[in-house]
Amino acid sequence: MRTDFVRREVTTGLRRNVTMTIAMVLTTAISLALVGTGLLAVRTIDSTEAIYADRLEVQVALTQDVSSADTDCSQPICQGIETTLQNSPLVESVTYESQQAAYERFQELFAGQSIADVARPQSLPATLRVKLADQDNGAEAVRQAMNGQVGVRTVIDQRDVVGKLFDFLGGVRNVTFALALVQAIAALLLISNTVQVSAYTRRVEVGVMRLVGATRWYTQLPFLIEAVITGVAGAVLAGVGLVVAKFVFIDDLLAGIAQNGVIPPVTIFDVLETSIWLVPIGAAIAGVTGYVTLRLYVKV
């Protein structure tokens, strides 16, 4: 294989179709940037779930009378509930939070806000905070066990609250993947079209190559390399776009919730690692599309 010949043909091909090449790079870049955004969303969802898996608790709120009468869970009703919970193999630990402790935490959480001033200790229930050993089945088991128990007002699974956040992140992921898919179809068609145009503009060369006995690979390789180069260029551009988007948009967008620890921040390492994946994805998509196009539509 004469590499200088192939390199020369590729350079000529890319230069000759320069507007089409740019269009192909941009479309591929947008498509891959959306794929990258989707991958970052998946990554964020995974790390958010990992953060919350350790933190999330099931709260068993006690009725008003038990809450105010029993400040340290020493009386039979509260004791009974606590023992039931502690004996469950699905439960890791149980902590009692009295009305007063709940009030103090409430004051801490809403410090400086008007709601903190109007709250009174007796308006908050005492709770048994349950850490689960079994994250998958524990919450439902606790809910069933506590349902209808004397002294239990309600069972709150913090997962229900956080679930909305996961739903939102999952939605972001789905939308970006759907857009990426549509954009990827456009990119595929454009790559296919560009390969056909490229082969058409070089039909005399291709004809001569076939006649003098160039192998199929020799004839096809310049077109394939052109496609792969534009795919890789699109991936690099997408990577640069993601880095820029991180500093310009994502950091601002997530500033509040990331600082509060609601979701983990998207780091530059995350963006770079995702971007690196886009390069082989871009190369493979462009290469396979180019190859299939040459096989189906172009006699080389």
Partner: peptide, 20 residues
């Protein structure tokens, strides 16, 4: 069926280049 963007020598050499 000559390649218009190649010289006379380039056209003839092309037939050998593409078969390696």
């Amino acid at each position: 069926r000559l390649l218009p963007n190649k010289t006379v020598g380039g056209n003839v050499a092309f037939a050998l280049e593409v078969i390696g």
